[in-house]
Write a protein that binds this DNA or RNA. Structure first.
Length: 216
DNA sequence: TGAAAGATTCGCT
DNA sequence: GCGAATCTTTCAG
């Protein structure tokens, strides 16, 4: 008989994706994840949110943590695509990534923001805010709302491991791209992807209107 | 062993 | 809207 989590997911009409369903290429995976549902399994129930913003850090990208080769800290980025990489930036914010290239090649996708769908009370309690738009808008907030920590780092992505991605059958949203946020190298590469018009996307408003509407 | 940088967030003006 | 807080890892000497 299936675990309770799986039953609950079924009730939400979620179809958990397997690791083999992911495209094994950084930018393809970045776009693929937009519109999918991030699911966190925890004792109090399922936390769910639709992914509305990602950033790709392909092999050779000077802005990626894998730029200086394999180290103890970034080892997860060099694992086969579908491994979870978690790290802390600026001492306070946790970031959730998924490795996106073949074993031995450094590359990853950062999940930057999500639209909360289920488990809102738990998220509000963790985040200490009521506004639904503030629950998972930005990588650090998303990680806090979904209780992401180092215990997930290095795990192979798999359904039933506490964290997975699902498809709820909705049509893929219109995806726009822009330059990435918060980096100092390769700042001109348009490897950030987001749902145009979503209020749950982080970053300055002018960046989220889409590159085609910037007027130049 | 020390110094510097970093894929951000929060609070205050 | 702007500036400070915070901590781990990495690189250089």
């Amino acid at each position: 008989m299936p675990p309770r989590d799986v039953t609950a997911a079924k009730a939400l009409k979620l179809r958990p994706l397997r690791r083999t369903d992911f495209p094994c290429e950084t930018l393809a995976l970045s776009k693929f994840l937009i519109g999918k549902v991030l699911v966190r399994e925890e004792p109090r129930g399922l936390l769910t949110g639709r992914i509305v913003e990602t950033e790709g850090y392909p092999p050779g990208d000077e802005a990626g943590h894998h730029r200086s080769g394999l180290t103890k800290r970034n080892a997860s980025l060099f694992r086969a695509c579908g491994h979870i990489y978690v790290y802390r930036a600026y001492g306070t914010a946790m970031m959730l990534n998924i490795s996106s290239e073949a074993e031995g090649i450094g590359g990853g996708v950062l999940i930057r923001a999500a639209e909360p769908l289920g488990g809102l009370d738990v998220m509000r309690e963790r985040r200490g805010v009521e506004d639904i738009r503030m629950l998972a808008k930005g990588p650090g907030r998303l990680a806090q709302a979904f209780d992401i920590d180092f215990s997930l780092d290095g795990h192979v992505y798999a359904v039933g491991q506490g964290l997975y991605i699902a498809d709820d059958g909705t049509k893929p949203p219109r995806v726009a791209s822009s330059v990435r946020i918060g980096i100092t190298r390769n700042v001109d590469k348009p490897w950030r992807y987001f749902v145009r018009g979503s209020r749950f996307v982080s970053g300055p408003a002018w960046l989220n209107e889409g590159e085609s509407q910037r007027g130049r």
